[in-house]
Amino acid sequence: MTVMTSIQGFLAAIGAATLELCRAIGALALFAVSAVAHAARPPWYPAELGRQILRIGYFSLPVVGLTALFTGGALALQIYLGGSRFNAESVVPSIVAIGMVRELGPVLGALMVAGRVSASIAAELGTMRVTEQIDALTTLSTDPMKYLVAPRILAAVIAMPMLAAVSDVIGVMGGYLVGVERLGFNPGAYLRNTADYLLLQDVTSGLIKAAAFGFIVALMGCYHGYNSGRGAQGVGRATTNAVVSACILIFAANYILTEALFSS
């Protein structure tokens, strides 16, 4: 008898968790659709959009730049090491460039921005939820989805590709510095090699990824902040969930996008 009830309890717990997961996915999907619909239709709040681009793009530059610089450098060393095993050290410039531009620039940049921006958006909107500022917007005939969520998502979709472009340049520069100063490459040859093998579609595929990651970063911050639980604890949980879910979704989206851009 007790075995039966404990099995039933176990199954009930699995069922409840599954239902909750479905509910969360559905709620997130509805939120995303509504956010995009609001971003596409007026009224727009250009001042708000400008502020968010500055916050998401400009103030992330140091973090993203340093990440790219060190990653480019380390990549050059690793590829040299791997390449030297079959006498192919000369691939360093082109592989560094392709690796940075197609993969590491957008992904690592987005992860850093997820830590910074998802967290701060979630904390900001969560605090606004808890202190009734979001309710107050509604009573002032201002749709919070339009005023708060849409500009943040638009700003991230605009700013992330710009960050990725900067990160591409700095990452290649990191590889160049290590290649020339440490591995003894000829400076002119290094740059020529980089330019010759890098295709335009490498760059565009990286920028497309970055835009998608920007969407994810802002969406996770907004969704968790907007639906924050009550009190300081609720805001804390919203912040953590925003960062964790943004990072996981970035990895998942990265694989899917790479697969999609791979065949084209």
């Binding site: 009734e132 500022q133 005939s141």
Partner: peptide
């Protein structure tokens, strides 16, 4: 929505935009 256009509310906690 039309009612809110001619509406004002003071929230218990103020709810000012910080």
């Amino acid at each position: 929505a039309r009612m809110l256009e001619r509406f004002g509310m003071l929230f218990q906690g103020g709810a000012l935009f910080d």
